[in-house]
């Protein structure tokens, strides 16, 4: 089947029930998208489906035909999306494992609501677990990014 990821076309031969997460990671070698739970609970695998944040571990690749998929590797050309910039600027990451998912959730959130309140940020980011507890820094970074959109 055909896939469109980060503006590139890929043709792959694969069981259509395979979750997109594993297609990205194992087949397209786009390993920036992370596995955390496999059941839609942690947000580590968050990608964009036509600009909307989705859990790639819980969507079969069959559902991705004719969808523009964006992963962390394709969020910006030079790693300079306002969310990425804010993340670096405020020194958000600790182990860093959850952060691709956090950034993909945050960037989708901001594209829907470019001036979120503190409460909206917290709520919008609550589907993403950070085991290192970088939460308050994440929220600050989302706020900063929203000011620099």
């Amino acid at each position: 089947m055909d896939l469109q990821v980060n503006g590139k076309k890929y043709t792959i031969d694969i069981d259509p029930q395979t979750p997109i997460l594993w297609v990205l990671r194992d087949h397209l070698k786009l390993v920036g998208t992370k596995y955390g739970c496999g059941i839609g609970q942690c947000g580590a695998c968050t990608i964009h489906f036509n600009g909307t944040a989705v859990r790639s571990c819980s969507i079969p690749v069959a559902a991705a035909a004719n969808v523009a998929i964006t992963t962390i590797e394709g969020l910006s050309e030079k790693g300079d999306h306002p969310v990425q910039k804010a993340w670096v600027d405020l020194d958000v990451p600790q182990c860093g494992y959850c952060q691709a998912g956090q950034i993909m959730t945050a960037s989708a959130l901001l594209s829907q609501n470019n001036k979120p309140t503190e409460e909206e940020i917290k709520l919008g980011m609550s589907g993403n677990i950070c085991r290192c507890s970088t939460y308050t820094k994440i929220n600050k970074a989302v706020k900063q990014a929203s000011e620099n959109l």
Partner: peptide, 20 residues
């Protein structure tokens, strides 16, 4: 700032699970 920040936020930091 974390020396790996840039790699982390662009998805290029390689964790063990990313080994291929």
């Amino acid at each position: 700032m974390n020396v790996a920040s840039r790699e982390i936020v662009t998805g290029t930091a390689k964790f063990g699970i990313d080994t291929q």
